[in-house]
């Protein structure tokens, strides 16, 4: 990788000021960015690390929701949301491997929006609010396709607020080498309304399966989606699975998520 300058701000104002300059790149845990820089897919002039900013770390419960600082690591999300939001905790506890979870952050994963990452499904199905130093986005407005988000140049996530659903579950069919989702489905139910978000399947990145949401809002049982058809068009094809296989998994995993939601 090419060399770069390093900045380690300790507050949000300094971070914003540093990131306003050209060719800067924000880094949190670096578990995606460092491999990306090694392969020279990114070669920023300056890296601005967010890990020295304490105010964007940690998990804080409030009435009906839980707010997670963007620089909170997967291991801390897994440990600290276990009773508050078990489906989210279980998602965090199964990302990558233990060493990756000790560095990688929720904000980094959401900002990267890898089409096979787990957190985007939790944010979208969970109707999360994604806050940056400048504004706030609903998850519906935040994810804009493969590795694309609504974030503008120099803008970074500060915290994510998840409303606590009545019940939820995340089901991931793991790509066994990387533990990324071959397909992952996050289902939430809150006040009768169901949201279903699918990761790992679509060439457009994470998306809501609205037909299933409608069917499950009327009848929260696996049988309610039995007649729905998931088209193979637009699904990811790679050495791990065909489009038809991924389309099949979307329905199977949605069913499992409904069965296991609590």
């Amino acid at each position: 990788m090419y060399d770069f300058a390093v900045e380690r701000p300790t507050n949000l104002d300094d971070a914003s000021r540093l990131l306003a300059k050209d060719e800067t790149q924000v880094i949190a845990g670096g578990q995606t960015l460092i491999p990306t820089m090694k392969s020279r897919l990114a070669s920023p002039k300056t890296l601005v690390s967010l890990t020295g900013i304490d105010e964007i770390k940690g998990v804080s419960p409030s009435q009906g929701s839980v707010t997670i600082g963007a620089a909170t690591r997967h291991v801390d999300v897994a440990n600290e949301t276990r009773t508050l939001y078990p489906a989210l905790a279980s998602l965090a506890a199964n990302i990558g491997d233990p060493a990756v979870r000790n560095r990688g952050t929720i904000g980094g994963s959401l900002a990267n929006n890898d089409p096979s990452a787990c957190y985007p499904a939790a944010a979208l199905a969970g109707d999360a609010e994604i806050k940056t130093q400048e504004r706030s986005y609903s998850a519906d407005d935040f994810f804009c396709g493969l590795f694309e988000t609504a974030l503008s140049e120099g803008e970074f996530i500060t915290e994510i607020r998840f409303p606590i659903p009545d019940r939820a579950s995340y089901q991931k069919f793991e790509q066994p080498a990387s533990r990324f989702a071959l397909v992952g489905v996050f289902v939430t139910q809150k006040s009768g309304q169901v949201r279903v978000a699918v990761t790992g399947a679509s060439e457009e990145g994470v998306y809501r399966w609205k037909e299933a949401e409608q069917a499950l809002s009327d009848d929260f049982r696996r049988e309610a989606i039995a007649d729905l058809i998931v088209p193979a068009e637009g699904k990811i094809v790679d050495i791990h699975g065909s489009a038809a296989y991924r389309a099949h998994l979307v329905k199977v995993l949605t069913g499992r998520a409904v069965d296991s939601a609590h």
Binding site: G30, Q31, I34, A99, V100, N102, R103
Partner: peptide, 8 residues
Amino acid sequence: AVKSCTMF
């Protein structure tokens, strides 16, 4: 535990 090849 961390992977020292993926940390500056």
